[in-house]
Design a protein around this nucleic acid. Structure first.
Lengths: 193, 193
DNA sequence: GTCTATAAATGGATAGAC
DNA sequence: GTCTATCCATTTATAGAC
């Protein structure tokens, strides 16, 4: 065993990724390795031992964030719901859950946009978005309803990024109506101009 | 008059702001003053003469971007349209216009998110968002319809940021339907769960 | 009004001790 | 497995020439 008791290499990596998230949220993508290392309670040299470069660390952080969203959609899946649109409903619930806390939502989005500065991360996000598109398209809803519902959910969840609040009664009613629409898609189809 | 003929101080400032936009789009918020100055065809010293610090330059660039969006909404106002929702319709048209070109949209959004790294810019954006909220709220549409339509338009326009495309037929139909809804808001109100 | 030269600071990464 | 010391590149900003 190494010199520090109580923390495995894996735990240290984990701590470094978490610290990087905090540091980037607080200081932007150019938080220094020194900052990140201090946040995690190791030295800069220690950090470099675990991640050969800053880009490698940032890339792992990005993977972590995308996986966390995937996990929260999985957790929002209703096992008793077997109707068409069940994934879309989970997506809506997961996307809008943090809306309870505009500040958290905003910081989370700001973090991702910071990470996308790295071309490798932008590519990762693009591939992830493509995966979501395909999965949602296969969820059994009419394309027009899916497009509306996803656009509205995305719009509501990204609003805090620009500083707007989504904690109004109208926003809460909208969330309910979007879920309702996924169960009665004909209501929207009937609205053709 | 100074040493360089043909360009007033005002024009030079303008060129520097435009160059900053290009440089930040290409290299991120940490484009160096040297890069920006070269883009504008002046030296770094010349840049510093016009903007005392990098933050000052970035702040002016941010103001410029927000003003440009305001101007594009103004341009999208239909003079013959005096019905409730006329501003909202212009907002939708302006927000979705660049959707024709996902790449341009993406770069534009990426630029703004880069700028928001600066706390002063974040505060500016927050105040701007508040202004838009107030202006749209006074546009005469029922709050629920306004909330839906703005959320959907925002969602569609920000999708390219994550790498998703908004150039599908379903997206084009959605844009039409959103505009339609602002003229017949009762259609949405009728959808109450 | 713009340029050159340079100061002063900071950041990423390496080498090697422990 | 982690830390210290150090190198080198880059960057903002200043001083002063033209």
């Amino acid at each position: 065993m190494g010199r520090t008791a109580g923390r495995s290499p894996h735990d240290t990596r984990r701590a470094l990724v978490d610290a990087a998230a905090d540091a980037v949220r607080a200081r932007g993508i150019h938080a220094s390795l020194d900052d990140i290392a201090r946040f995690a309670g190791v030295s800069k040299g220690g950090l470099i031992y675990h991640f050969a470069s800053k880009d490698e660390l940032i890339l792992e952080l990005a993977r972590d964030q995308l996986a966390a969203f995937q996990a929260s959609v999985d957790a929002a899946l209703d096992p008793s719901d077997t109707e068409p649109g069940r994934l879309t409903r989970a997506y809506i619930r997961a996307a809008l859950a943090p809306v309870e806390d505009d500040v958290a939502m905003r910081q989370s989005l700001a973090l991702i946009t910071q990470l996308m500065t790295l071309p490798a991360v932008a590519e990762l996000a693009r591939a992830d978005a493509e995966r979501w598109d395909a999965a949602l398209a296969a969820d059994g809803l009419p394309p027009d309803v899916l497009t509306l519902v996803v656009a509205a959910a995305d719009g509501m969840s990204t609003a805090p990024l620009w500083g707007a609040s989504t904690q109004t009664p109208a926003h809460r009613r909208l969330a309910q109506r979007l879920l309702h629409l996924t169960r009665h898609p004909h209501l929207w189809e009937a609205l053709t101009p």
